[in-house]
């Protein structure tokens, strides 16, 4: 069984999702549940911290694609941080850097939300 953990925490107005382990077709529904919870709570500013994520398949990538539009329609976004090179390469292969923002550190991604809400 693939090991995967997902944790949700709030940093100010931003919701941070920590993903850990292996994100595949088996574990992707756990991440979907967290996004559904955020929609229920009308939380649309999301940073996903990939620091402990070892592996991702297209099933995992599909989760972000399924929710990003709704977040953006509500003046939010899904931003990515702390991604390992092997995981980033998969996002890159599928052209994600055109449509999503990637940050080296979580606080940079959070700051981007704070900066844009000032205007």
């Amino acid at each position: 069984m693939a090991e995967f953990n997902v944790n949700l925490r709030g940093v100010g107005a931003v919701s941070v999702i920590d993903v850990k382990g292996y994100l595949d077709a088996h574990t992707a529904p756990e991440l979907e549940n967290v996004f559904n919870r955020l929609l229920d709570q009308k939380q649309y500013q999301v940073v996903v911290n990939f620091d402990d994520l070892k592996y991702i398949s297209s099933a995992g990538l599909g989760v972000f694609m399924a929710y990003v539009e709704t977040m953006r329609e509500n003046e939010g976004d899904i931003k990515f941080s702390n991604m390992k090179e092997n995981v980033y390469n998969i996002f890159d292969l599928l052209g994600f850097p055109i449509l999503y923002e990637f940050f080296k550190e979580e606080n940079e991604a959070i700051k981007k939300f704070c900066d844009s809400s000032k205007f």
């Binding site: 694609m65 399924a66 990003v68």
Partner: peptide
């Protein structure tokens, strides 16, 4: 990917 984004499609990537 741009079309996928517009249509909220998630399949076919594999």
């Amino acid at each position: 990917l741009r079309e996928y984004y517009k249509q909220k499609r998630v399949g076919g990537l594999g």
